[in-house]
């Protein structure tokens, strides 16, 4: 039995690439590359630009983890995943983490064997309609045809919203974002529903963005965040605190351009974050708890930037996506973004 297994392994290893589950951090280090599941293409969140470089706030989280582990944010290989295969790809160990606008839910966290480590974008499901329809509220959508991208919580929220309001609709289920765009712009459906962020991103790509409006109703809570496989707590911690480091950096006003000056800050939390302070008198910084070097958070901020920088660069009001901070502002600024203290 064992021999057969090792024979099979030996045979297949010749042809196939190898991954393992044991300790993800060791695997990643041994490989010299972080494998990160990204979207197949969602502007502002994860999309290759003309030069083929992935850009977006989701892929920035992957870069942050790579910066923390290797001190080099470019050591990431992005594996585009559809919403259908994203969980199996993570479960099977093909990728080390998943960061592609995925909603944190009980079932995914518990039953599907994932572990969500935080939220990098507070989203909610919205509706987009052509401005020419003259609709100003989702409650006027009785009898409409609705394009839904399947394989998400979207179809469930949609069903719940319409039945709760006693309205009927025709569901037009499509597989990918771009198919939904095609069906919606062709007029196959009146409404396109997905996470509001996705609607903004799609709209930015339309020939005439101003001809479409996103309705004010947000019908669901969609906390989007990175996830890892269940059962490797140490690795989950690394991803979790990489994200937290970006948020704390914004809170403390540390940016990629002033991070070197901030090493002289008087704020003890900043000093802990940037790897200047030591844990007690151990002679080592806070990196040791995560199994990383002490400057891991410094590298994140230096190479990727803080949360606000990432947001403004990819989806903020000065980009074609044009999303306000809203819920995603820090708790101090009226939003709900809140990272645990760094100590």
């Amino acid at each position: 039995m064992r021999q057969l297994k090792s024979l099979l392994m030996a045979l297949t290893l010749v042809l196939f690439t190898s991954t393992s589950f044991a300790a993800t951090l060791d695997d990643v280090k041994a490989r010299g590359m972080l494998k990160c599941g990204s979207n197949t293409g969602l502007a502002g969140f994860g999309l290759p630009n003309d030069a083929g470089v992935w850009e977006g706030i989701d892929v920035d989280v992957c870069r942050a983890v790579a910066a923390a582990v290797f001190g080099d944010a470019t050591k990431v290989e992005f594996v585009p995943t559809t919403s259908k295969v994203r969980f199996t790809v993570l479960q099977s160990g093909e990728i080390d983490m998943l960061s592609r606008n995925t909603t944190w839910t009980l079932q995914r966290d518990v039953e599907l064997g994932l572990e969500f480590v935080g939220v990098n974008y507070y989203d909610g499901q919205g509706f987009m309609v052509p401005a020419s329809l003259g609709v100003s509220s989702a409650s006027e959508l009785d009898g409409a045809s609705v394009c839904i991208q399947v394989g998400t919580t979207t179809e469930m929220n949609l069903a719940d919203y319409f039945s709760a309001n006693g309205m009927s609709y025709e569901a037009v289920p499509v597989e990918t974002n771009s198919e939904a765009d095609a069906a919606y712009t062709a007029g196959r459906c009146d409404v396109y529903t997905t996470d509001a962020s996705g609607l903004y991103a799609s709209r930015a790509g339309y020939p005439d963005p101003s001809a479409h409006v996103v309705l004010p109703e947000i019908v669901s809570k969609e906390p989007l965040g990175p996830s890892v496989r269940h059962g490797d707590g140490a690795w989950a911690d690394i991803v979790r605190w990489s994200l937290n480091a970006m948020i704390i950096a914004e809170e403390k006003g540390i940016t990629s351009s002033n991070v070197d000056e901030m090493k002289n800050s008087k704020d003890p939390e900043v000093l802990r974050l940037l790897g200047v302070a030591q844990v007690g008198d151990t002679g080592a910084g806070y990196g040791q708890w995560l199994g990383l070097s002490d400057d891991w958070a410094y590298q994140i901020i230096k190479q990727v930037g803080n949360y606000s920088e990432s947001f403004e660069k990819h989806i903020g009001p000065n980009t074609p996506i044009n999303i306000q901070r809203g819920l995603n502002a820090l708790y101090k600024d009226g939003g709900i973004l809140y990272a645990p203290p760094f100590r």
Binding site: L8, L13, L15, T17, S18, F21, V85, S92, G93
Partner: peptide, 19 residues
């Protein structure tokens, strides 16, 4: 093949999508 092959194979073996 796409979804389940990785489940059938031993740890550490994961053929890529095209394979």
């Amino acid at each position: 093949a796409n979804v389940m092959l990785p489940l059938f194979l031993p740890d550490g073996v994961s053929p890529d999508n095209l394979l």
